[in-house]
């Protein structure tokens, strides 16, 4: 059996020039491992959306990725403001992104719905004033 591969990323807050670096790196790693393009796409989309959310809404955070034989496990943790109403935040089109962020192309309110859509397992732990952790899994068929 293959040993699992573990990757760790620090996502700096408010640095849009670096946002996407972690998901880009994971994508390259998965390609090297010969993982199927559709799995790579799902992982990349979910991770990029999560990474951007950390930068925009939570002042950065950390991402841990574990690649096992059967699945890719992603944990995205931040110490931001937390999400008060998860149901609302999960709704397509709901966004609290300010205007300066919207002018960069964000704020469609599609990030969390995309993450749910492109992962096989999805859960959010969040506490107002403490932070948010996304637990994501994508199965490798």
């Amino acid at each position: 059996m293959m040993d699992s591969i573990k990757l760790h990323y620090d996502v700096p807050g408010d640095d849009f020039t670096r946002a996407g670096a972690a998901s880009g790196d994971v994508k390259r790693n998965l390609k090297t491992l010969g993982i199927s393009p559709s799995v790579i796409r799902n992982v990349s989309i979910a991770m990029y959306e999560g990474e951007i959310n950390m930068v925009i809404h939570a002042g950065g955070g950390v991402i841990d990725v574990e690649i096992t034989e059967n699945e890719i496990i992603m944990t995205l943790a931040d110490k931001g403001p937390g999400i008060e109403n998860i149901e609302l935040a999960m709704r397509e089109g709901y966004s609290t992104a300010p205007d300066n962020i919207r002018s960069l192309g964000f704020g469609a309110g599609m990030g969390l719905p995309n993450i749910k859509k492109y992962t096989d397992e999805f859960s959010i732990d969040t506490k107002v004033g403490e932070g948010t952790t996304l637990n994501l899994k994508v199965y490798i068929q």
């Binding site: 996407g20 880009g24 989309i45 469609a108 599609m110």
Partner: peptide, 26 residues
Amino acid sequence: LLSWVMSRAKENDIWLTVMGNVNAVA
């Protein structure tokens, strides 16, 4: 809208946009 494009654009698509920033490149 990047999240929109992210989930709808397909491999080998030509992408038409006004967004010329680093996030669009990502």
